[in-house]
């Protein structure tokens, strides 16, 4: 049958390879049932609530406080990850030292470690009797049950993003421009600021966007360390879960939809930035 149908299908179109119908069917069914149907349920719930009530719930003081905390802590975590990420990418690409490959492998721990485990470890480390808390608390720095704890948990779970987006760009960067700048007498820091940084900037922006998006959605690691005090250290996704437990499905849906919209906007931004970064690399490379 195959030998008989092959020439016919080859003539009909470029689709010589078999399995289009089967694999497309499997893909769309899985995607439809597992991903799209539940998301549609959320969107329909939002439509049912209506814009006026949606706005009222979304701007209620406790919701606003939770959203503000989530955004601020995510921004703090992202600033840390941007600096640490560029440093790590630079060190891993530019220097050769014993243990470099091990350090490179260790970077992925935050992605491999389940978030509940990360949250448990961080909260115990920063607690007054933990290894870090015992040093920090006598200095008057409290991390657990404060925004610093929320930011620390968010930072931990999104550490690899900036490193893994900047690293390949640094690897591809032609050293001749830096050498030219050096011959012309530029200070090493000036070379970094004027030559290296503009080249890695598009990739850095992508990493920052991904890191920020992940921090906004992080739940497991944060709730262990945050203390979850309403108006103080309660993140938006936890407030959504609390609303569910109160059987306030409208409240939960509004917060979830708000977070979903922010996530999709960030995804769109990161896709645009990624396309631009590729074009930039295409031009210089």
């Amino acid at each position: 049958m195959t030998s008989a149908s092959l020439p016919a299908s080859a003539k009909r179109s470029k689709r010589v390879l078999p399995g289009f119908g089967l694999t497309m069917g499997v893909t769309l069914t899985y995607l439809g049932v597992i991903v799209l149907l539940p998301v549609i349920a959320l969107v329909l719930k939002g439509a049912e609530i209506g814009p006026a009530r949606f706005w009222a719930i979304a701007t209620a003081p406790r919701t606003l406080a939770a959203l503000q905390l989530t955004l601020t802590a995510a921004a703090m975590a992202t600033v840390f990850n941007a600096i640490y990420g560029v440093l790590m990418a630079w060190v891993l690409v530019r220097y050769n030292f014993p243990g470099r490959r091990l350090l490179d492998a260790l970077v992925d721990i935050p992605f491999a470690l389940p978030t509940a485990v990360a949250g448990l470890a961080l909260s115990a480390l920063f607690a007054a009797n933990g290894w870090y808390g015992a040093i920090l608390e006598p200095m008057g720095i409290q991390v657990v049950f404060t925004i610093w704890g929320v930011a620390a948990a968010m930072a931990f779970t999104s550490i690899p993003f900036v490193i893994r987006t900047v690293q390949p760009v640094l690897e591809d960067l032609d050293p001749q421009y830096e050498e030219a700048a050096r011959t012309l007498g530029a200070h090493p820091f000036t070379i970094f600021r004027r030559v290296v940084f503009p080249a890695i900037f598009p990739a850095l922006l992508v990493g920052i966007t991904l890191s920020f998006a992940r921090s906004l959605g992080e739940f497991g690691a944060v709730i262990f360390i945050a203390g979850n005090l309403p108006f103080k250290t309660e993140i938006a996704s936890l407030l959504a879960v609390i609303r569910l437990e109160e059987y306030d499905y409208n409240g939960a849906a509004v917060i979830a939809l708000t977070l979903l919209i922010i996530a999709l906007v960030l995804l769109a931004i990161s896709n645009i930035l990624q396309a631009r970064a590729l074009r930039y690399r295409g031009k210089t490379g």
Partner: peptide
Amino acid sequence: TLIEIPFSISPIIAGICYLLLYGRQGL
């Protein structure tokens, strides 16, 4: 893009979506 969307959606939101689909008051 649709296949990769679950990477950008917080798992908590996924859970809430499922509750709104299969829950007692759900679709």
